[in-house]
């Protein structure tokens, strides 16, 4: 279903670009026509061309904004800490993790390791 939506969006972008290019062509032709003395005919082309540019650009900008709004789901991390030496470990969340559960022994001092927090962070921040 997602690929169908993607194909539809791609088709809409191609159509928008086509309308934009054709509208620019109409505006240029109209300006040349006005210089060449074809007054009224060129003014209609200029009006239609300008409307086409406005509509195509607004729809392309809207599609871009919508594409930017789609964010990947945040990743969830588990923070594990040693109660004795404070050694801290951050890893991806695993099913069964919960805050305050004990998860083995510390690699550094052999103390008890427990989950101190579980949080979600979006892609770029998570990598930092």
């Amino acid at each position: 279903m997602e690929s169908r939506a993607n194909r539809y969006s791609q088709a809409m972008v191609i159509f928008g670009i086509f309308v934009l290019v054709y509208s620019v062509y109409m505006v240029i032709s109209a300006l040349i026509g006005i210089q060449g003395g074809h007054g009224e005919e060129s003014y209609y082309s200029l009006m239609i061309g300008s409307t086409g540019i406005a509509l195509a650009s607004s729809s392309l900008l809207l599609m871009r904004r919508r594409a930017l709004q789609v964010k990947p789901p945040p990743e969830v991390f588990t923070v594990i800490k040693c109660s004795k030496c404070g050694f801290r470990l951050v890893r991806r969340f695993q099913v069964g993790d919960y805050v305050n559960s004990e998860v083995g022994e510390c690699q550094q001092c052999g103390g008890k390791m427990a989950i101190t927090s579980i949080y979600a962070e979006s892609g770029e921040k998570a990598k930092a």
Binding site: P74, S117, I118, Y119, A120
Partner: peptide, 12 residues
């Protein structure tokens, strides 16, 4: 109602 964000978790 979505997984707890880092800034919320840190506010504890």
């Amino acid at each position: 109602i979505t997984p707890m964000k880092r800034e919320i978790s840190e506010s504890a």
